[in-house]
Amino acid sequence: MEQLQVKCKGFEEGDWIPIRYTGRGEDLSPELELIGIAPGAKSIAITLDDASHPIFPNFNHWVIWNLPVQSVIPEGIAHGKYVGSLGATQGKAYGRHKYRGPKPPLKAIHNYVFTVYILDCKIDLDAGSRKRDLLNKMEGHILQQATLTGKFQSRRE
Results as ranks from 00 to 15, higher is better:
His141Thr: 01
Leu28Ala: 10
Gly36Asn: 10
Gln5Ile: 14
Gly80Met: 01
Gly95Trp: 01
Lys103His: 11
Ser129His: 12
Lys131Phe: 04
Gly140Asn: 03
Ile64Cys: 14
Gly128Ser: 14
Ser129Met: 04
Phe11Ala: 02
Thr47Cys: 00
Trp16Arg: 14
Cys8Arg: 08
Arg130Glu: 03
Glu12Trp: 06
Gln153Asn: 06
Val72Pro: 03
Pro105Glu: 09
His97Pro: 01
Phe152Asp: 02
Glu33Ile: 15
Val63His: 02
Glu2Ser: 13
Gly128Met: 13
His79Cys: 12
Phe152Trp: 06
Lys107Ser: 15
Ala108Leu: 12
His79Gly: 14
Gln3Tyr: 09
Tyr21Asn: 13
Asn136Ala: 14
Phe56Ile: 14
Val113Cys: 04
Leu106Gln: 12
Pro54Glu: 11
Gly76Ile: 08
Pro18Arg: 06
Leu4Gln: 03
Lys103Trp: 12
Lys151Arg: 13
Pro74Val: 05
Ala127Phe: 09
Leu148Asp: 02
Lys42Gly: 11
Ile17Thr: 02
Asn66Gln: 08
Arg130Ile: 00
Ile142Pro: 10
Gly101Asp: 08
Phe114Pro: 00
Ile109Pro: 02
Arg130Val: 01
Val63Gln: 04
Ile64Phe: 11
Glu157Ser: 11
His141Gln: 07
Ile35Arg: 15
Trp65Asp: 10
Asn111Thr: 12
Asp15Gln: 15
Leu106His: 09
His53Leu: 08
Ala108Gly: 06
Gly25Glu: 15
Gly80Asn: 04
Gln90Glu: 12
Met1Leu: 13
Val6Gln: 12
Leu119Gly: 09
Gly128Phe: 11
Ser129Arg: 09
Lys92Ser: 03
Lys98Val: 03
Asp15Glu: 15
Thr147His: 08
Asn66Tyr: 07
Pro18Tyr: 03
Ala93Glu: 00
Thr115Gln: 08
Glu31Asn: 00
Leu119Phe: 11
His79Thr: 15
Thr115Trp: 07
Asn136Phe: 06
Leu48Phe: 14
Trp65Ser: 05
Val63Asp: 02
Leu4Met: 01
Gln153Trp: 02
His79Ser: 15
Glu13Met: 10
Asp133Ala: 06
Ala78Ser: 11
Ser129Gly: 13
Glu2Gln: 12
Ile73Gln: 02
Ala45Asp: 07
Lys103Ala: 13
Glu31Arg: 08
Asp27Val: 00
Phe59Val: 00
Val69Asp: 12
Glu75His: 07
Glu26Ile: 01
Leu86Asn: 06
Glu157His: 11
Leu32Gln: 10
Ala88Cys: 09
Gln144Tyr: 05
Ser43Met: 07
Val113Phe: 00
Ala41Ser: 10
Leu86Met: 07
Gln153Tyr: 03
